[in-house]
Design a protein around this nucleic acid. Sequence first.
DNA 1: ATTTTATATTGCAATATTACGATATAGTTT
DNA 2: AAACTATATCGTAATATTGCAATATAAAAT
Lengths: 110, 110
Amino acid sequence: MGVTKSYHFTELQNELASLLKAIAHPARIAIIQHLLKVESCICSAIVDEIPLAQPTISQHLKELKNAGLIKGTIEGNSICYCLNEQGFNKIKGFLEIVSSHLESQKKQCC
Amino acid sequence: MGVTKSYHFTELQNELASLLKAIAHPARIAIIQHLLKVESCICSAIVDEIPLAQPTISQHLKELKNAGLIKGTIEGNSICYCLNEQGFNKIKGFLEIVSSHLESQKKQCC
DNA sequence: ATTTTATATTGCAATATTACGATATAGTTT
DNA sequence: AAACTATATCGTAATATTGCAATATAAAAT
């Protein structure tokens, strides 16, 4: 059917899935890595950095923004994008729980 | 076009995207959480735990396995699934890099 | 050997995602 | 104001994902 049955799952499960889905594309990972590298949030010279058409980049940026992983502020003509710590912390929190559980699980079964 | 232009991106970017995509579904997060909870890797009583049809769960398990996030071993009649630490560590590594960069970035711009 | 139990595969319909050309919007420069 | 620059939106084609019924496979129990 192509539609995720999100009503079967908890709010946290759905939220985590949305956040992870937003990162789960090589172009969006490249955008994140670029924003990390440039420190000060140089705006969308991202378009020059990544070999995809401008509307495509714009769409990816929108997804990252909707998910709460980046922020954008208008700066005259252009827009300044930078990473949003909060979004990443949620994902990091989940992975830390997974890791700590895995470490305390002494006996591996598989 | 619907097809990701993965040839534009680095191997690491594509690998991370695949791993993240594999987790990025509420049912698969629920599966991961269940496997965490049951400690010893009780097999696919997951089907009883999650309100999706058996073929759907089987498909989700396959994706998690292909991505390297879970392992499965045959145990007589049934199959024992458990989490695969390695896959999670790769994602955790990426997020730790993001976090440490963000923390050292004093001036927020947006 | 037949039935039962556990899991995987196939095929398919519904929906979502990816990418981009064309175009719109809005600030900047001339 | 006209031209330019930066970004967003629309429309659309190609492809991917989700979910499940039906069916296949294979071990276990009877």
